[in-house]
Simulated scan of single mutants.
Amino acid sequence: MKRVIVDCDPGNGIPGANVDDGLALALVLGSPGLSLELITTVAGNTPSQQGFNVAKSLVERLGLSIPVLKGADRALEEPAEPWRKALDSRVYETKLAHLWQGVRQPTVFPAPEEEAADAIGRLICANPGEITLVAIGPLTNVALAMERYPEMVEAVQEIAIMGGVFALDDYIKDTNFGLDPEAAHKVLTSGASITLVPMDVTTRTLMTHSDLDRIAKLDTPLARFVSETLRPWMDYSIQTRKLPGCWVHDALVIAWLLNQQVATAADYYVDVELRPGMTRGKSWRYRRPLRVDVGIGEPDGGLVHVLQTVDNRLLIAMLENALAN
């Protein structure tokens, strides 16, 4: 049994918000091999309070007692306003908010007083070598936890991260690292044991309406949650991204923890650009020896395990199996 914390920015039921965090949570909850001990939310795909409402609503809907805590509302340094404008208004600019008509909205809950970063740091440090931290939003909470609990770097069993983009047409940066580059830099170069799932591999995932139809027939609480909330996002993705379905970025992180046959991986040094300009927030990776190493000093932190390819058929089968539970 692998003990996990999931730090996320879910948007299930929110017009225009990606639903892969909620799908990842459903995969955790439906997998007997994983014990979900804490859910925390961070500003990213959705504002932190909105993500908290989504996660808390799911836990309440399932009758579970898993603690859910709201985390950081803003990045360490990156201005929030341009990102919020882009992420929160695009669905209205494209006049596609009607796709969410009739979809159940998350309940609004008061946020607990305990801070997510403190809860993450305390739980990991109290259980050295036993907790896997799944970070599938911007890394603000994780960076704050490391700052407050430096021993967490050695105590965490693994940090499994969805974020970064290295060589993908139409992207210079991704949302998770772009929204808080300083946090991404701090975590990636911390020396902790890290697995990174970048967009280069998650954009090779695909869920279609046919897949969702099979999930809907399972008629379990988890399957109903997924089929209800993924349907409008899938239609939105088909219209705005010209895909035959939608990518399921964050679900691949959980699938890798369950079965490493679902992907291939290789080790790299990874970091994020922090300087102002159009490449701020862009991730990069390298392995030694480099053919040209002028100006390349010693790397910060250690090697990061980076996923490279995915078996999408196995991924979808794993999702269906978990949602049947």
Rank of each mutant, 00 (worst) to 15 (best):
A24M: 04
P10Y: 01
L29A: 04
P32C: 08
G33V: 08
I14L: 12
I14Q: 07
V4R: 00
N18M: 09
S31L: 09
G30F: 08
L27W: 07
P10R: 00
G16W: 09
V19G: 06
G16I: 08
N12Q: 12
C8M: 13
D21M: 04
A17F: 07
G16S: 08
G33Y: 14
G16N: 09
L34I: 15
G30H: 08
G33D: 15
L25E: 09
N18P: 01
R3F: 11
G13S: 12
P32I: 10
P15S: 12
V19A: 12
L25R: 01
D9P: 03
V4K: 00
D21G: 08
L25N: 03
D21K: 06
V6I: 15
G30R: 04
I5P: 03
I14G: 02
G22Q: 06
N18I: 10
S31N: 11
C8H: 03
D20K: 10
A17Q: 08
G11T: 01
V4G: 02
C8V: 03
C8S: 09
I5H: 03
V4M: 06
N12W: 03
L27E: 12
A17E: 05
L25K: 03
N12M: 14
A17W: 04
L23I: 13
P32F: 04
L25I: 14
P32V: 07
P15G: 10
G30N: 11
I5Q: 01
L27A: 08
D9E: 08
G16E: 12
V19N: 06
N12K: 07
D7P: 04
L29C: 12
P15C: 13
P10H: 01
L25W: 01
C8Y: 00
L34E: 13
G11S: 01
P32N: 14
L29T: 02
L34Y: 10
V4L: 06
N18T: 13
L27S: 14
D7Q: 04
I14A: 06
V6E: 05
R3S: 15
P32H: 11
S31Q: 13
V19W: 04
L23R: 03
N18D: 14
G13H: 12
V4T: 07
N18H: 11
G33T: 11
D7R: 01
N12R: 05
V6N: 02
